[in-house]
């Protein structure tokens, strides 16, 4: 149990997929302009990550990894070079499902997120999480926990930045620094704060 809690603490604070691994920046920068949409995107990412991580783990374990197809009598096949394309397809399919789900149950959020919902598909953090869990040789439960933790970390980071940017509206930022430049400096400060968590382990 502790091992799994460790994975979550690790992926939220110490190895935050966004603040340490820099994955998910594009949507992070564009969506963090509004707090409400950030919360919505954060939840969407948590959900998508929690389902794609175990899904991709299973596909890798039973189809793609070296010797994975032993159950079908094809143990000598190594299809791991197909990882990128299979993972991204699974992610695209899952996001499509989430879109339909959201359209049915929360149309206002669906409209607010607009183009950024399908853009979760190309959100580096989703593909990155799947690739990392393969590299770290996680099991099924570990992968799911890791996916959830990654999403949580992303959520925390994007909501933090959104709330800070809301305050920044009242500040006098030099024109050329407005937008991306300022967001980068702010994110740098947030990431520096998170660095203080390194070294913590239960």
């Amino acid at each position: 149990m502790q091992h799994y809690i460790n994975i979550i603490i690790n992926s939220v604070f110490i190895e935050n997929i966004l603040l340490v691994y820099f994955l998910g920046m594009c949507s992070f920068l564009s969506i963090s302009k509004k707090v409400e949409t950030s919360i919505g995107l954060g939840f969407a990412v948590i959900f998508v990550l929690s389902i794609t991580a175990p899904a991709n783990w299973a596909i890798n374990e039973y189809f793609l990894a070296d010797g994975a197809l032993a159950w079908a009598g094809l143990g000598e096949l190594n299809l791991d070079f197909l990882q990128y394309i299979v993972f991204i397809s699974v992610i695209a399919a899952m996001v499509q499902l989430v879109e339909m789900f959201m359209d049915r149950f929360s149309p206002s959020l669906y409209v607010n997120l607009g183009i950024f919902l399908p853009l979760i598909t190309v959100n580096c953090s989703i593909l990155g999480t799947s690739l990392f869990l393969v590299e770290r040789e996680y099991g099924l439960v570990e992968s799911t926990v890791y996916g959830f933790g990654s999403g949580l970390g992303f959520f925390l980071a994007i909501v933090s930045l959104a709330t800070i940017r809301k305050r920044m509206r009242y500040s006098n930022v030099p024109p050329a620094l407005r937008g991306v430049g300022m967001a980068m400096l702010l994110t740098g400060l947030i990431s520096m704060a998170f660095l203080g968590f390194s070294g913590i382990s239960l």
């Binding site: 603040l19 340490v20 820099f22 302009k33 509206r169 030099p174 024109p175 050329a176 620094l177 407005r178 937008g179 991306v180 430049g181 300022m182 967001a183 980068m184 400096l185 994110t187 740098g188 400060l189 990431s191 520096m192 660095l195």
Partner: peptide, 25 residues
């Protein structure tokens, strides 16, 4: 990571000052 964010932020600032592209927020 913080260093990366800071440097990129500063470079974007410099680049945008040079090309005079401003974010209309």
């Amino acid at each position: 990571s913080p260093g990366a964010f800071f440097i990129l932020g500063l470079i974007v600032w410099a680049h945008r000052s040079y090309t005079k592209v401003i974010d209309k927020e």
